[in-house]
Design a binder for these strands. Structure first.
Lengths: 135, 135
DNA sequence: CTAGCACTTTACGTTTACGTAAACTTCCCT
DNA sequence: AGGGAAGTTTACGTAAACGTAAAGTGCTAG
């Protein structure tokens, strides 16, 4: 075998550092739908990818609903023209949102650069004062 | 005068497209502390900047507590060495988080590229079918 | 066989970030 | 003077995203 075919819920929980409760909650919200062996949930590599996408969305502040949308973008179950147009519009919107986030990140980085400079400056002052007392 | 010196709450609310309730809530959480003229809140340009920072944080999925931290980074009220070290550590952590977000955004962009390709492909299929029926 | 671990469902609890309604006060306008 | 428009406080309500406890099932190692 090349890759493990299935995963248990605890296994995934450990790998992605979430609780099993969280994974079940995502299923409850219609984001995951693993197979069952009896009562027990069996996750496929595809399920694992979906979970990964959800968590990536979370890191960017996306709601589960938004992540669900983003994931469903990948399966153009859309069969008519109108649906596809709507899809392309959504994609375009998301792109703009990501661009805004890029700008925000850049802004934050500058903010952090400033903060670091100020902190280092404050430390220099401390060092200077110590020097003064020594001499 | 060059720039307006003060702002009313409604004014800021309109400018940033939030409700006055939201702005008062931020004050309640210790993120803003505008002057008062009687009961009425008077916001300075500095307050306005803070609000801007909060909203930028929100767009990146930061909690108000995180934004409060980020903003306070800018005023190194820290007076001793230990505090400053902690500050630099926080800055470093935030930087890593932003880097992770950058990677996530890149991943999402590729995801969107894929989705768009698939959607356009699906549309081509529709067009082709229409063609078939015509001839 | 039973102890223990991982899994299950059900359901109430919690935090964050506001929404919304009620009941004022203040100011401005006609 | 009277009535909006915009401000205020107080307080209960709500959606999202889980946490947490209770009570039960199922396998497996000793």
């Amino acid at each position: 075998m090349t890759i493990k075919q299935t995963y248990g819920i605890g296994e995934l929980a450990r790998e992605f550092d979430v609780t099993t409760r969280t994974i079940r909650f995502y299923e409850d919200q219609g984001l995951l739908s693993p197979r069952r062996r009896g009562q027990t949930r069996i996750y496929t590599p595809a399920d694992r990818v979906v979970l990964k996408l959800i968590l990536r969305g979370k890191r960017l502040g996306f709601s589960l609903a938004e992540s669900r949308d983003l994931i469903s973008l990948y399966q153009p179950s859309s069969d008519n023209r109108h649906q596809l147009d709507a899809l392309l519009n959504k994609i375009s919107e998301k792109r703009e949102q990501l661009d805004q986030q890029l700008r925000d990140i850049q802004g934050m980085r500058e903010h952090l650069d400033d903060a670091e400079l100020r902190a280092r400056e404050a430390m220099r002052q401390l060092a200077d004062n110590a020097e003064t007392f020594k001499e």
